Structures are given as C-alpha cells and as structure tokens.
Simulated assay, not measured.
Amino acid sequence: MHGWVIYNGHLATDAFLQFPRAIQEAGRRNNIPITLQANDQIPYQLDGQGISIKTDDLPDFVVFNDKDIALARTFEMLGIPLYNSAETIANCDNKVIMYQYLAKQKVPIPKTIIAPKVFSGINEFHRARYIQLAEQLSYPMVIKEGHGSFGEQVYLVKNHDEMLSLVETIKDRPFVFQEYIQSSYGRDIRLFVVGSKVVASLKRTSSHDFRANVYQGSTIEAYQPTEQEQALAIQASHAVGAHYAGVDLLFGADHQPIVCEVNTNAHIGNILQHTGINMADVIIHEIMTQQTD
C-alpha cells in the first residue's frame, strides 16, 4: 500500500507543507510510502477514451490537502479513495454550502441567512431587499463570505450603512448574514475530529478582535472539551462527510456550544505544539483502518 498527499503547488511554503510532510513522516513510521504531489504537477486529461493520469504508479489512496475539487473528483472517478472526499472538500470550501449541510442535520449553528445570487457586472443593487434580509437578525451581525481562510472575509457590521457598504463590494460573491454570538467574543475552541473521535482540542482567545483565529493574533492553550462539545464536533464533522476535520465551536450565551465552522484543511502544527498529539499519526491509522476494512 502506498499513497500520495496532494498540496497546492502555488502555496508550497513551509507553513502549507507542514501537514503534507507530517503525513509523509507518519506513513514512514507505519511502513507506508507516501509521496508529496503538487496539484499543478499531475498530468491528467479527459478525452473520448475517458479520464487518465499519466503515471505508471497510481496510489492506493490520496490524502487531499488542497481545494482543487476537479482534481479530487478525477481521483475518485478512477476509483482511488480520498481523505477527505471531493464532496466533503466542496461542502466546506464554501461556507454557504457548509451551513446548509449543518442545518440539514440539525447541528446547532448561529442563525444564518444566505444572500441571493448576484452575477458579476450587474450594476443594479437592491438595497431594500438586503435591508429586509438583515432585519431578520439584529445588529451587530456577522457577514461571512463563502470562500475565505484564517478569519479573513469575516466581518462584524454594526448598522444598515456598514452592511450596505460591505454588501455593495461583495454582492457578486457567495456570502451569508449571520447572528453574532456576543458571548463568544474573541473566544472559540477547535476540536480535531478523526473518524468518530475527538483526538485533541485547543482554546483560542483574542483580546482585541471578535475573531479568535490564530492568524488574527489570538493566544492558544490546550483545552479539555466536555462530552457535549465532543459530541457536537463529531456530529458536525459527520454532517459534512469528513474523515477528519477541525471543528470550531463558539460559546453560546446559555453555555451551550454552537458550531462556527468545519475545516477540512485545518493546520495541525499548533495541536502538536500545545498538546503533544501528532494528528498525522492518528489520520494515517484511520486511513489504514479504512483501507483494510
């Protein structure tokens, strides 16, 4: 058995290669050779004969650490198992879709309203309609673009004027209006789920920003989640179909946890640093179990 780890060839920095290299090393410790492959270096084509990847040594499985969904689907169409699947990556790459899947499974999330589709280049802006949508919530509220990482493309707006100014800029992108969870200002927890188990957890805290993302300057510490928090993280991970995921939970006003996001490409370096748990080993063990079932 041998595998590949797919990473984005245009993001081949040490930070983005940390996960692929950790998976490769975990494979080595388990006598499973794993090759790192940049998404833009895989020669594949589609024609009247079907789909082909021009290599003599296709992997038995792929750990897909990228968002190149077309390439992910190509592997699956060739019968190669993916961790995570193309569908799961697509579900979580666009937060609009992610919240739909979470809501479908009745996972507790902030009240969310999906903005209507607007095509690029359209000059007409239905201000009144956006005001009507926003009035289903209260200010301040959060606006989240469908695509974004590290807490970017997430905005806190305090009134109609701020909302309309922002929407005018992003109206042709997928986004949602979302209830602001004041009780979780600058605080959240990330639980890393593998299979049906929470393996490690971190608490993230910011003193200057409503977002607790590390890239926004928060501090990190190991965290022991409650049984309720663990069950919710597992439910959220399963709702989007993930083999493994980083699930971010907010602290609700009534001390009830609320799912903020599910991340299929969550970085694992901070978990190792603050908990001593190497997530790559756990993921490889899960893959070995899946492959031998």
Rank of each mutant, 00 (worst) to 15 (best):
E261P: 12
K158G: 04
I170V: 01
S52Y: 11
R73P: 06
V176K: 02
F150P: 07
D248R: 06
A134R: 05
M77V: 04
D56C: 06
N265I: 14
D93V: 07
K104A: 06
H238G: 06
I287N: 03
L58M: 11
S201D: 02
A26N: 00
M141A: 13
W4K: 04
A253V: 14
T169I: 13
P110Q: 06
E168F: 15
A134P: 15
P33I: 01
G217S: 07
A15C: 05
V282P: 05
Q153S: 01
M288C: 14
Y215C: 10
I113D: 00
R127A: 13
K171F: 14
T219R: 10
E261N: 08
D248W: 14
A115C: 14
A231N: 12
R173N: 12
Q290W: 10
E179S: 03
L102S: 10
Q136N: 11
I181L: 09
K144H: 07
L164A: 08
S120N: 07
I113N: 00
Q100A: 14
L156G: 11
T55I: 08
M163E: 05
S206C: 10
P108K: 06
V118A: 03
K203I: 15
H147E: 01
L272R: 11
Y215H: 13
Q216F: 12
V240D: 00
C92Y: 09
T112Q: 02
P116I: 03
I271R: 03
I80Y: 11
L46S: 07
S218C: 02
I271H: 04
P59A: 02
L58I: 00
Q273E: 14
